[in-house]
């Protein structure tokens, strides 16, 4: 009983591990997912702007073989919410300036997710807002869908990479607050290796 209590006190929770010893691996995985999605948006816009395809035919790379990946509102909404949850779950590993930029990305993604929730709601109910022929979001009233979602992904991606950059290369004084191994300092590693005689 006493042993079980002692273990439960000392064992870090999943959230603590994800923001501590597993933060680096979690961020790498998350970055890979974001970049893959991002590359699809870039491919779609290149198909329209450079190759001259019609917007409905421009479905990125994977969407050419699996069109439902582009047409399914559920998948778009699912991705938006996964992104939002990851931003929230991994936030405590960030400190100082990197935390500021990470939360900027989080709040922009929060609005992006609301827009996708509106689209998903219309797809479920079978009623389109604003008398449109397809599910329509608020900002889509002013901006075409392809450009709008390129824009959303850009303004989420940019603060996210700035946050990661400052997390990998912390400003003086901020490094001491990080509980993870994300900080990247090859010079310091070389010095440590030299001091160990390896």
């Amino acid at each position: 009983m006493a042993t079980a209590t002692a273990c439960s006190v000392t064992k870090p929770s999943l959230m603590e591990r994800l923001n501590g010893q597993w933060h680096k691996q979690a961020l790498w995985t998350y970055t890979a997912i974001v970049l893959a999605h991002w590359a699809e948006h870039l491919a779609q816009t290149i198909q329209i702007y450079v190759l001259g395809w019609n917007p409905p035919d421009a479905r990125g790379v994977i969407g050419i073989w699996f069109p439902f990946l582009v047409s399914s509102e559920l998948l778009h909404y699912g991705y938006a919410i996964v992104m939002l949850v990851c931003f929230w779950v991994l936030r405590k590993g960030f400190t100082g300036r990197s935390y500021f930029w990470w939360m900027v990305a989080f709040w922009i993604q929060f609005w992006h997710h609301i827009e996708h929730a509106l689209l998903q709601g219309q797809a479920i109910v079978g009623y389109n807002l604003f008398g449109k022929p397809a599910p329509w979001s608020i900002v889509q009233l002013f901006v075409p869908r392809v450009e709008l979602h390129l824009f959303y992904n850009t303004i989420v991606f940019i603060p996210m990479v700035i946050a990661m950059f400052y997390h990998m290369f912390p400003l003086p004084g901020e490094e001491a607050h990080a509980n993870c191994s994300c900080a990247w300092n090859p010079r310091d590693l070389k010095r440590r290796a030299a001091s160990l005689g390896t």
Binding site: L42, Y49, F142, V143, P144, E147, L148, L150, F151, I155
Partner: peptide, 26 residues
């Protein structure tokens, strides 16, 4: 992509053109 989109949007009908160009500029 933003520059290419800006050029492409120039051939689109208004108001799509303005909306697309504003977000691509941002």
């Amino acid at each position: 992509v933003s520059i290419a989109g800006w050029v492409w949007a120039g051939a689109q009908p208004s108001p799509n053109r303005e909306g697309a160009r504003v977000v691509l500029a941002i």
